[in-house]
Write a protein that binds this DNA or RNA. Structure first.
Lengths: 346, 346
DNA sequence: CTGTTAGCGCATTCAC
DNA sequence: GTGAATGCGCTAACAG
């Protein structure tokens, strides 16, 4: 049988309450007593039964997710995963809520973080925007002792406890490498369609892509980046203009969420390009199946949500996290390794 | 507050014991009483607190993993993941053990299953071999009411409760598709290096690969399959002979665990082929980084182990499983999206 | 500073 | 058939 608090109380010659105090390092224990108890703990190899502890505390963890609003399919998919995770939240003693704020808007994001802090939530997961207001708000959350994780787009250097998402530089490199191999010796320039350079993930993907393309044996022109603000109409216009202006275009790397506009422009022109996009959504899945898109780089939203919950809970309890399990992989999907469609993939 | 057994007891006008009886449908309750309790349960929207239930039961779940022995790096990596999961097993009230049996040996596998059943374990996870003895052994486990999941290689049609692994036909198709794109218009035949057709995963991968190659616009000769028995020496000899006999060989698909022998043969010849292999190990990772291998298809061993544990526990408790979470993805790794090396990846 | 006591939500004897 | 009482491992009042 595993040792319990009773065993360590007996071994140390103290009461349960005292054991509990040193276990949760609460004040009110003489250092000698504390030392004796700690000795007993290591001697017995005690490890606390978290389930029992939570039962006794009957504590619940209100967690808030802050996402950009709008029709960004990946973000809406993330939201769906959060709601789905909410169904099982009872078992994990968590209560999940979602707050949406205007995309690429630092002030709104900062306000949402402050509101969550004021509410006294047990943890915050937010899709970061790279701006001083957001830095400051995260700092205030830290001071209030509320763990914060960044989701999808990081803000390292801020006080965030953890980043949950892919290595976006590597993602860009991967896109570049695949683009190079798929194009082979075929000539023609390549264009990058982004959302906004205000979010770090887009900037990092571009950086990785450019470096991979530069390292290719076949030199290739990269046209100036199109910033579509993740907006379907703007993305469509930018892409249409580009297709008209550059008849020998060989490839497109869509590193943001402008895929709807991109696909519309491509379909209209009926050109055969090498297209690499991000995030598996109903749109990109369909385009992959029809051959309009050659590869999709993806981060698993379900995995990210579950990871965020586990990490925020662990942080709230002051526990450590299993880094290997929490690492988010960069999935490469082609037509052939597409997972079966899930009902609410968006 | 969530409703508890007390609430339902009060509402139904019975005692806790009776509530418990109907909750775990144990005998000894008049059908009228039972109906009244069940009405209260749905009326209150009761959902059982699993943590508390397990605490009260103080039950532990002995689970056994049956793997092929030998120096198959993927299997040893799987074993490492099981041991790693064992460290956290306390929290999940599981006790994990690993049994190894000779590879591709149905009788040994069947005997190991029978032994586990005799021991009275709570669940069995096994890498299946396609043979009647194994079918029969799985059947006996089912009769003893012990859940069985197949790991990595399936045996559908047997009574296994679940398969944990990738869709191997899709894996083969993916390999074929990538091979075709990477080779482009480069001429030359392609060869497949397999382990044994006695395990279904190898057969399925071959099937998928052939169909994808057949569907390519560029017709390409596929040489007869080399069966290396996942043995480094035999794989090395077969590959060396092939390289000598086919000077214009364009590509290799290694669908089993013969990568060590393959790489040795390739390094010796210093040829530049398109090589696609399975499973990310220290060897394949190194070869990917050095450019000897172009792509690695992988199934995440850690994910598989954690999934097996969750599923066996759920089955043992008669609970349902979240299919989406348990689906094992087929990872595509190229040089650029390689995850950081973990200490014990093997 | 330290100990006693009473639960958290559920399962399980043992009586009736 | 049904109910009362006890405990799983831990936390949290409340006393001393």
């Amino acid at each position: 049988m595993r040792p319990t608090v009773h065993d360590i109380a007996a071994k140390a010659g103290v009461s349960l309450a005292t054991v509990d105090r040193v276990l949760n390092d609460r004040p009110g224990v003489r250092s000698v007593t504390k030392a004796r108890v700690e000795a007993a703990i290591v001697a017995l190899g005690y490890v606390r039964d978290v389930a029992a502890a939570n039962l006794a505390k009957s504590r619940i963890y209100p967690l808030v997710f802050i996402l950009p609003e709008g029709d960004n399919p990946f973000m809406r998919g993330l939201e769906a995963e959060i709601r789905r995770a909410g169904l099982h939240s009872a078992a994990e003693r968590t209560r999940l809520s979602v707050v949406t704020v205007p995309a690429f808007d630092p002030a709104a994001l900062a306000a949402a973080i402050d509101a969550a802090v004021a509410e006294g939530v047990a943890g915050i997961a937010a899709v970061a925007v790279d701006a001083p207001e957001v830095f400051a708000a995260i700092g205030r959350a830290q001071e209030a002792d509320i763990p914060v994780v960044t989701l999808v787009s990081d803000l390292s250097g801020s006080g965030r406890d953890h980043f949950i998402g892919v290595d976006n530089i590597a993602a860009g490199r991967t896109a570049g490498s695949l683009m190079g191999r798929f194009l082979g010796s075929r000539p023609g320039p390549v264009v990058v369609l982004a959302g906004s350079m205000r979010v770090r993930d887009h900037g990092e993907r571009l950086e990785g892509f450019l470096s991979a393309m530069a390292a290719m044996s076949v030199a290739r022109t990269i046209l100036p980046v199109l910033e579509g603000q993740d907006d379907p109409d703007l993305s469509f216009r930018l892409m249409s203009d580009c297709l008209a202006a550059v008849p020998d275009l060989a490839g497109v790397y869509s590193l943001g969420a402008g895929n709807r506009g991109l696909l519309k422009a491509l379909a209209k022109r009926g050109v055969d390009l090498c297209v690499i996009a991000h995030e598996l959504t109903t749109e990109t899945r369909g385009a992959l199946e029809s051959g309009l898109i050659d590869a999709v780089l993806n981060q698993d939203a379900g995995h990210e949500v579950r990871s965020a919950i586990r990490i925020l809970r662990a942080k709230a309890d002051g526990l450590s996290v299993n880094a290997a399990q929490e690492r988010i992989r960069l999935d490469i999907f082609i037509k052939d390794n597409l997972p079966p469609a899930s009902p609410d993939e968006e």
